[in-house]
Design a binder for these strands. Structure first.
Lengths: 145, 145
DNA sequence: TATTGTTATACTCTATAACTATA
DNA sequence: TATAGTTATAGAGTATAACAATA
């Protein structure tokens, strides 16, 4: 459950909208994963395997402990969606990649998780640009990652 | 971990910004809770206790099972932040409310979780209105809850 | 009989600490 | 010695099923 609090008494209308936006986003994300019998974390990791990734890279990217990545990737491997191999240059390291089945599931997930797209497509092209610019400004200097 | 996937290949710039916005929101939420030794779920439930709430109400609102609410509220009770009492009119039901200490912690949490406010305050008043209107339009008819 | 909430159970996420293999 | 990853373990979120108390 990653739901934000409901609107607080001092919240502006804009804050309330932001809260709902985040809430809907997260709910749609989990629902799309569940439709494929995946947890959000599994869908999340699988989605990041555009190409072979090192375990450590994933941990940094997700901001979580390496042991956590180990477990999730192990599960994806059991499910036949990902595979670990030794890194050719550093035999301590491992690289994870999607299996062909993992590719399919990823595509399926992205098709189901249409929230971002469908939400944005309710806006005109000009509104989309405006929206992006406003989010960028709102996020401010935290953009570094 | 409720991180969305990284930008997919077909993602528009606007989608990428939305992804980052949601990501930052969730991270700040969890971090603020952790600073108070709370989990996100605990902070979430505590934040919803503006007044006495029925367990069943909370479950519906959070979109989760009642047994889940029982556990989280029980933990909040152990921590001295909330308290359950029998509903005066229906002795099957219970109402949960914050303790005075729970009030303090809630205020503290909201002060720490300044993300929404600080993000929005990077925008001018006119931009805030625009941003709110765009989010509202993007969310579309899902606003019913 | 239906509803509210709890308990028991099981699975997953997550982190910490200890460990193995490699550098 | 330091780094990459795993294993063992424990706390928490979550759902399902069975249950008690009340309606």
């Amino acid at each position: 459950m990653v739901l934000p609090n409901g609107p607080v008494s001092t919240a502006s209308e804009t804050e309330v909208m932001l809260f709902r936006l985040v809430d809907e986003y997260d709910r749609h994300y989990e629902a799309a994963a569940a439709e494929l019998s995946l947890t959000a974390a599994q869908a999340c990791v699988l989605g990041r395997l555009e190409g072979p990734r090192r375990m450590s890279e994933l941990a940094v990217e997700l901001g979580c402990d390496a042991s956590n990545v180990t477990q999730i990737v192990a599960r994806l491997e059991t499910l036949g969606l990902a595979q670990r191999q030794r890194h050719p240059d550093d035999r301590r390291a491992r690289v994870v990649a999607r299996t062909p089945r993992g590719q399919e599931v990823t595509a399926d997930f992205e098709a189901r998780f249409g929230f971002a797209r469908s939400a944005i497509h309710r806006l005109s092209a000009a509104e989309q640009r405006q929206f992006g610019a406003l989010m960028s400004k709102a996020l401010g200097p935290e953009l570094d990652r």
